[in-house]
């Protein structure tokens, strides 16, 4: 996919929780539309904190963060939900809603979006077929294997055609075969135009799927 305008831009961004030490400091980079980026670093390097910034779970405590051209540090609380709906998130540990079926979990972003609901069933069914779970639509998360849950999480993250997909250790609970299948899904999404950022500490995974990478060390970028 050809890279065009920046979806994400950070200029000197820092983050600290409360009065604690800075967990991220002086981050400056940009993700063009249609990019695929690895986010690398050891545990505690700041990958999850950076993803929390990009998923609008926290706001930067210094510097400037722009998503889809909107300044986040100055945006009002009311401005954030529409931006969040343009972001797909694959959480560490899936974070599926336990009392909802696979179908309803995947349908959540569509039900939250201000769009016609008439095509919801067809869209969700097609998405579950795409991730190979069309026979498991009615299953609750507790009835799914870890790999199936991860695929439901992926389907939920991409069902609304997000402009930006953020995944935090998406292959952490998967075996090599399932991880390979997941990476094919992410690559396909990227080919269709979604900017994809995947945080991982698996060097092997990165080597099997080469792409530009950001490496975090102690909350800062290392070239």
């Amino acid at each position: 996919m050809e890279e065009t305008e920046d979806i994400v831009r950070l200029d000197g961004v820092g983050l600290r929780y409360g009065a604690g030490a800075a967990v991220l400091h002086d981050l400056s980079f940009a993700f063009p539309a249609g990019a695929f980026r690895w986010l690398l670093g050891e545990s505690g390097a700041g990958k999850t904190s950076l993803l929390r910034l990009l998923t609008l779970a926290v706001r930067p405590t210094s510097g400037r963060l722009s998503l889809f051209g909107s300044r986040i540090e100055t945006a009002s609380r009311r401005d954030l939900p529409p931006l969040r709906r343009r972001i797909g998130i694959v959480f560490q540990g899936c974070r599926l809603l336990p009392h909802l079926s696979a179908f309803d979990n995947v349908a959540l972003p569509l039900r939250l979006a201000p769009r016609p609901q008439a095509l919801l069933r067809a869209d969700v069914t097609e998405m579950l077929r795409w991730v190979g779970l069309e026979q498991r639509m009615a299953a609750l998360p507790c009835e799914l294997s870890s790999g199936e849950r991860q695929r439901v999480a992926i389907a939920r993250a991409v069902i609304a055609r997000p402009a930006l997909l953020l995944a935090d250790e998406p292959t952490g609970d998967l075996d090599d075969t399932q991880a390979g299948r997941l990476m094919q899904l992410l690559a396909e999404l990227n080919r269709l135009g979604t900017t994809v950022v995947v945080a991982t500490h698996s060097v092997a995974l990165v080597q099997r799927h080469p792409a530009p990478a950001l490496r975090l060390v102690d909350g800062g970028l290392r070239a």
């Binding site: 998923t55 609008l56 779970a57 609380r77 009311r78 939900p81 529409p82 931006l83 969040r84 709906r85 343009r86 972001i87 998130i89 959480f91 974070r95 809603l97 959540l108 972003p109 939250l112 979006a113 939920r156």
Partner: peptide, 16 residues
């Protein structure tokens, strides 16, 4: 709380 946080992250407005 967990479910609300997920829905919030998916873009649900407070009013919803």
């Amino acid at each position: 709380q967990e479910a609300i946080e997920v829905i919030h992250h998916l873009g649900a407005a407070d009013g919803l």
